[in-house]
Design a protein around this nucleic acid. Structure first.
Lengths: 206, 206
DNA sequence: GTCTATATTTCGATAGAC
DNA sequence: GTCTATCGAAATATAGAC
């Protein structure tokens, strides 16, 4: 047996499709590009996966899950509010540094077919709405006990998510405007974990 | 003369193309849909505009300009820092409430072809980088004079832009998760102008 | 200028040899 | 399982009548 196990063709194709669909979206993706990326022939794609849509659904499901599951877990945990915010920030910036195209992909495809959100949400077993209930109550309690200033929990959550995710969604624009290469962008985001946490904490602490 | 001047066909087509391209992106847009939206025939699109790409370039240029010009003007103005932030927030939320698809469109197309950013940036006559210089200096002065706490100006700007723009980019997701219809989303954003300004001011005030 | 009809190209999908 | 060859549909683009 060779030390390096050769990847099953099916997985090679999936990896390739993941890259291409995530980069280009469904409409922009070409089966030819997937095949080329996988180093095989177009016909073979159809042998393993019936058609483009079948393929896309697998990819979307994975990306959807990557985008939501981590954050859902943290938001619905019973961590203290500030610690929860800290973990959300760290989790988002860490995973998006590794996979910066995920939010753009998920957002684009949900925008072009919003039913997917409900459909895949229940398929993945988490109710996107329920995530919020927990967080909302926690914020209200924190306000009650003067731990934080009065604030609309929806606005707070939008602020946290926006500041974490948007820099990656707009990464090509930000890199150009701020004259950064890949490395300086990454280290800026690494630094951002702390800066952003401090920023938000200061904004809501009495 | 009739009271209502009938719009020139060229403009009817441009309006239709604006809608379709902005909603679907270049790859997802169909000339057939543009024609239908304009209430005319496919062939006529080619009579007025050579081909799909020519058409797209016009649309992109307009959207690009709408996305950047207002913000560029405010950022490079000589308004006091806090007033500048307030105006950025109000401007972004106002224009994006009217045209919520613009940032998603511009971001998507820049991501799929980053050269466009430089290319159109200089075509439009504003240097995306220079916008930042002014803001950065202003922040440094404000820190120096203890008007605000020490903060990385890039991080501050990212926070302002993210919190304004991301809610519109992710609007389909947010609406679903927060169980909002179009009206409640709009009024939430209207309320957000003040909430967000207060949030940011509190975060940076000593 | 606007339409119908048609050509051309691109792309997804299938058949069949190996 | 993998490839070559080919089909067929969809989408863009052009020709030509009115």
């Amino acid at each position: 047996m060779s030390k390096e196990k050769v990847k099953a063709t099916e997985d090679v194709i999936l990896d390739a499709a993941m890259k291409v669909f995530t980069r280009r979206g469904f409409a922009g993706a070409r089966m030819e590009e997937v095949a080329k990326e996988a180093g095989i022939n177009r016909a073979l794609l159809h042998y393993y996966f019936r058609d483009k849509e079948t393929m896309f659904n697998l990819i979307f499901e994975t990306r959807f899950n990557e985008f939501f599951s981590g954050i859902a877990r943290i938001l619905s945990s019973d961590l203290p509010l500030f610690e929860k915010i800290r973990q959300v920030i760290n989790h988002e910036i860490d995973t998006l540094t590794k996979h910066p195209d995920i939010p753009r992909f998920v957002i684009m495809e949900v925008a072009s077919q919003p039913e997917r959100l409900i459909q895949y949400g229940q398929k993945m077993g988490f109710n996107p709405r329920q995530m919020l209930t927990n967080f909302t109550q926690q914020v209200e309690i924190a306000i009650e006990s003067k731990e934080i200033i009065p604030i609309d929990s929806r606005q707070l959550l939008m602020n946290v998510m926006s500041t974490c995710i948007y820099p990656f969604v707009a990464k090509p624009i930000i890199k150009t405007m701020m004259q950064m290469d890949e490395n300086s962008f990454t280290s800026m985001m690494e630094k951002r974990k702390k800066d952003l946490y401090d920023f938000i904490v200061k904004a809501i602490t009495p």
